[in-house]
């Protein structure tokens, strides 16, 4: 198999299978969560559950001052990773073309050099996150294979993407094929690891916020 045929396979049937498994797994898990349902509210609420739910989806993105003060570096690193990853994902020209092809939506791209820089920052934050995980005895103790797997499949697309962009290692054809395959690995693994949080974060925040909002307390 040449790099050319590998790339054609990665862009073709391999991607179809990967996105199929991703959608199947994610939808199944979300329905699984939603079908758990919740008990009817028998008492009259003091506030609005809906308002509380929507508010919490947003406010939980901002750390509480007291929590932040305890581990500012680790929390900031989490932001750096998520923001960096999303910027690279959403504002690189070829990525926008990919999204446009699937959804019809399109927006202006950021220059490649900026994306490359953001990619490096994103990778550095992932490495730092791993160091934090390994150096903290409690965190290390509660970490499972699942955590390390999620870390690895998140790092690989950023790493291979950076290498493909820089034309540094392997011919571009092979590196692009590996980049696409690494994304497919992420797609396949995501529904069965903690990476489901890319969607389920909204559900859990909504639930917490709804409960609190209904009772008229802060969440």
């Amino acid at each position: 198999m040449t790099a050319e045929t590998l790339l054609t396979w990665a862009r073709g049937s391999a991607f179809d299978w990967a996105i199929g498994i991703f959608v199947f797994g994610m939808v199944l898990r979300l329905i699984e969560v939603l079908s758990l349902g919740k008990k009817p509210d028998l008492a009259e609420g003091r506030g609005s559950g809906v308002k509380g739910g929507l508010k919490t989806i947003v406010t939980r993105s901002i750390p509480r001052a007291s929590v932040f003060a305890r581990e500012p570096v680790r929390i900031t690193n989490g932001y750096v990773f998520h923001v960096g990853f999303l910027l690279v994902l959403l504002f690189y020209g070829p990525h926008i073309e990919f999204i446009e092809n699937l959804t019809g939506l399109s927006w202006p791209a950021l220059p490649g050099g900026i994306i490359a820089g953001l990619g490096m920052i994103t990778m550095a934050s992932l490495v730092l996150a791993l160091i934090f995980r390994l150096r903290n005895p409690v965190l290390r103790h509660i970490s499972t294979v699942n955590d390390y797997l999620a870390w690895a499949v998140t790092l690989l697309p950023v790493l291979t993407g950076y290498l493909a962009y820089s034309h540094a290692v392997l011919p571009y054809t092979a590196m692009l094929a590996l980049h696409i395959l690494s994304i497919e690995l992420l797609l396949v693994v995501a529904p069965f690891t903690k990476l489901t949080h890319m969607f389920s974060f909204a559900l859990s925040r909504w639930y917490q916020g709804y409960q609190a909002g209904y009772r008229g307390i802060e969440s």
Partner: peptide
């Protein structure tokens, strides 16, 4: 485009 899936996504 090279970044676009070519099967039936």
């Amino acid at each position: 485009a090279l970044s676009v899936p070519i099967g039936d996504a």
